[in-house]
Simulated assay, not measured.
Amino acid sequence: MSDTVIVIGGGVIGLTSAVVLAERGRRVRVWAREPADRTTSAVAGALFWPYRIEPAELVGPWSLRSLREYVALARDPAATGVRVVAGLMSDTPLVGLGSWARELPELREAQAGELPDGCGQALRGRLPLIDMPAHLRYLEGRLRAAGGSVERRTVGGFGEAAAEAPVVVNCSGLGARELVPDASVFPVRGQLVVVENPGIEEWFVSAGGKAGGGRGAARTTYLFPQPYGLVLGGTADEHAWDTRPDPETAAAIVARCAALRPELRGARVLAHRVGLRPARPRARVEAVQLPGGARLVHNYGHGGAGVTVAWGCAEEAARLAG
C-alpha cells in the first residue's frame, strides 16, 4: 500500500491531480461525493485565463504548465473536449500578464474595427476553450487507463483516507471549508445561461462592471461557443451560497450579451446553470503531516481559475506527495 494515494474530490482539480499521480506510477483512488458532471467544474464556461486567483508569483508558472497541456490536448478536441478558439478579452492590458502570455504569439491589442459596440479596448487572441462535461469524462477515462479508480464516497475527515493510504491529496474545493476546516474558503457564485447558438464562433469576455446585491457582487459579460450551445454569463457574487438560478439575473445576462451581439435577441434558452467557485485569498498547494504519519497534500482554493491552473497545480501536488 506504500504507493497508494487517495485523492479527495472529483472535480477538475481532483481528477487532473489523480491523472498526474497515476501516470507517475502511483496507485490512485479518487473519493468523490458526487459524479464529475454534477461538480462545479462541469458548470464552468472554461476559457483558459488566470481569473480571480492568487498568489500571482505561483499562478504564472501553474498557468504556463497548464496552457502547454491544453494546447497539446487541443490536437484531438473530439476526445479531450479542448479546442483553441479565437476571441476578445476586454478591459485588460497586454502589459503585465505574465510569462504564460508569451506562449500565445497571436495575443495582441485588438483594432478598433474588431471591437463590438460599447467596447473601448480588448486583447485579441486564440486561447484554449474547454467543453467541461466532455473534458471531465476524458480525465476519468485517462485515469482509469493509468490504473486509477473513482469511488463515490462522502468523507468526514482525513483520518478515513489516511487509514487506507500513506498519502492523501485534498482537492475538496469548497468542501475544504468544513473538511480541513478552513474558514478562509468561500463561494463565488456564478450564474450563466446556455442558448442555441445563432452562429457565433468566437468568445468574448468583459470582467468590468458591478452588480447590485450582496457584498463582493461583481458582473461579468461573456460568450463562449461550446459544442452543446452558446454559454452566456455571468456573475461573480462572493459569499453567495444559493445554487438556484435567478430569473432576473438570467434576463440581465442575456440582455448584456445581446447588446454586444444583436443576433442573440430571441435566442432559444437551453439551460440555466449556477456554480459556486471555491475561492480563497490564496490558493493552497502545500503538504502537512497528519497525526499518525500520513502525508496530506492540500490543493484547493483556486476560485474561478481551477481549469486554468489545474495541470500546474497537479504537478506541484504530485511533487509534494513524494
Rank of each mutant, 00 (worst) to 15 (best):
V269Y: 03
V28P: 02
F158M: 12
D37S: 13
V193K: 01
E57L: 07
A163W: 05
E69K: 14
A321M: 05
G199S: 11
W62G: 02
A86H: 13
R244E: 14
L21M: 13
T243P: 00
G292V: 11
S172Q: 01
A255D: 15
G81D: 02
R108Y: 07
A78E: 15
L97E: 08
R137T: 14
A36Y: 10
D237V: 07
L127P: 04
F48G: 02
V168S: 05
A310N: 13
A42G: 02
E54D: 14
R268F: 05
S63W: 01
A183Y: 00
G214M: 07
R29A: 14
A236K: 13
V167M: 06
S99C: 00
R33A: 15
R177L: 05
S17L: 00
A314T: 07
A165R: 06
V297R: 01
L139I: 08
E316T: 06
V205Q: 01
A314V: 06
A22Q: 07
V205R: 01
G275F: 10
A271K: 13
Q226A: 13
A318T: 08
F204K: 03
T249R: 14
F224Q: 02
Q191D: 07
E178A: 15
G304P: 04
E202K: 05
A72E: 15
A74K: 05
W31L: 06
L223Y: 00
Y222S: 13
P262C: 11
G322Y: 05
S41I: 06
Q226H: 14
G141N: 11
R284H: 12
G173T: 06
S41W: 04
P55T: 09
A78T: 11
A255V: 01
P278T: 09
T249S: 11
G25I: 10
Q226Y: 00
V188C: 14
K210V: 12
Y138I: 04
E238Q: 15
Q121V: 00
A211C: 02
N299E: 05
L67T: 09
W100H: 04
Y70E: 03
D117C: 01
S184F: 01
F224H: 12
T235D: 09
M1N: 08
P247G: 07
M1L: 10
A271W: 01
V205P: 00
G212W: 06
F224Y: 15
L232A: 14
R52G: 00
R153Y: 08
R108N: 09
